[in-house]
Write a protein that binds this DNA or RNA. Structure first.
Lengths: 233, 233
DNA sequence: ACCTGAACACCGTTCAAGT
DNA sequence: ACCTGAACACCGTTCAAGT
């Protein structure tokens, strides 16, 4: 019972473009526009069809279903992640730059927050990043499976830190943000936890942006220190 | 313009239960059943209404909308995360046990993978865990904002590692899993990346479960080492 | 106070029919 | 080979009307 294995759009050939305004590429471009303008909920096959001056169902000639379309669009997120050459700079510098560029890539495309880690990342951009990261950790001194473990650790940290950040931005984007009100709300919820209340009095809510950057750098330094330690022993 | 701030179900009083089979509690219980049986997509207001022998729209008396219902159900995930008392065991042991229980809590409820980090976690269970974790990092020796940074780092790592794990399980659950086929698929996608191909030849695909546990422990040790290092300097 | 059903404004996807 | 529209089987939510 071999059953058909795990499938991904990237494993199949696209239908070739013939008419000018109608191709997989064209569709993905329009989907990205919609995603960037209106977010994940703003993308529907019907709206996408309208934008391309076609029936919604015409798209199914080029793309098997909406999930595949998302998988195609998703690869774009990886396009501006960078891994500075670990031959020229220290691997720590390279890893740190990668982590920051990953975070920014997601913050710039909030819709990606709901896809990341949930969707296979087998597009060309994702593979490039994975390949460069592997090489980086090899230069650093990791070997065998530990090359992959180190990669997983770094990306898990960055994604785990950034996904909530995106969600938070989305949740507070509508209402004009009021630090005092926020403080009061959370204080109410955390009323029976004296330890939590203590935290609420801190500056945390006044400049959430700066706070998050500090938290990110603190955690990143920890992760990199931890990885470094794995190398020396 | 203060605008209404960030809102969460947990900040409002529930409507009190009157009839026996109809209350916010009852509804959340039924929603959890549906989630555990059919996953996130299996939960619709209509199906939930049917299960409770009521019109779908009757639920709106007890719950403002589906998102709030999810927020309510979501707190359940935190219920079996444990933080061993850091007064009796080392903080490292405590943190490690917490991390493992977090991972298991999510693996046991795959639907949570799509909610985690995306939804405010202000329910009683989530607050208990947050409070205990805070105390743990305080006992460890962190102070001020670093208590929170340490907490964010640990949970970001665990969530970032576990969310893809859940997604992977879901993607491979349908098809009977075939290691060779999988290897071939990924090899095809990664064809131009010699470094990636090297990885594919490893044992990675034969026992993914064991592999993931090793990866998790490797990363966890790194994160804890990194946090420890923050304490001594 | 609580519950109902009809209705609104959407979805993704299939498929026979057209050119 | 490509595109269309109608149709199917769903959604979440509102709201006037019932008891």
């Amino acid at each position: 019972m071999t059953g058909k294995a795990f499938s991904s759009v990237w494993l199949r050939e696209p239908r070739k473009a013939t008419s000018p305004g109608r191709s997989r590429e064209e569709i993905v471009r329009a989907a990205l526009e919609l995603l960037n303008e209106e977010g994940l909920d703003g993308l529907s096959m019907r709206k996408l069809g309208a934008r391309l001056q076609s029936g919604a169902t015409s798209l199914y000639w080029y793309v098997a279903n909406k999930d595949e379309l998302l998988e195609l669009a998703y690869d774009e997120v990886w396009s501006d992640m960078v891994v500075p050459d670990p031959g020229r700079v220290s691997w720590r510098h390279s890893a740190s730059a990668l982590a920051h560029s990953m975070r920014q890539a997601i913050l710039r495309r909030p819709w990606a927050g709901n896809l990341i880690g949930r969707m296979p990342a087998l597009g060309p951009n994702a593979l490039r990043v994975a390949d460069q990261m592997r090489r980086m950790f090899k230069v650093a001194g990791f070997a065998g499976l530990e090359i992959d473990y180190a990669g997983s650790t770094l990306t898990a940290y960055v994604f785990g830190m950034t996904i909530p950040e995106v969600a938070w931005n989305a949740a507070t984007a509508d209402h004009s943000y009021d630090a005092d009100e926020m403080r009061a709300s959370v204080a109410k919820a955390a009323a029976q936890f004296p330890d939590m209340l203590e935290r609420i009095d801190m500056t945390s809510y006044d400049d959430p942006q700066a706070m998050r950057e500090m938290a990110f750098d603190f955690g990143l330094a920890s992760v990199l220190d931890g990885l470094e330690r794995r190398l020396v022993t």
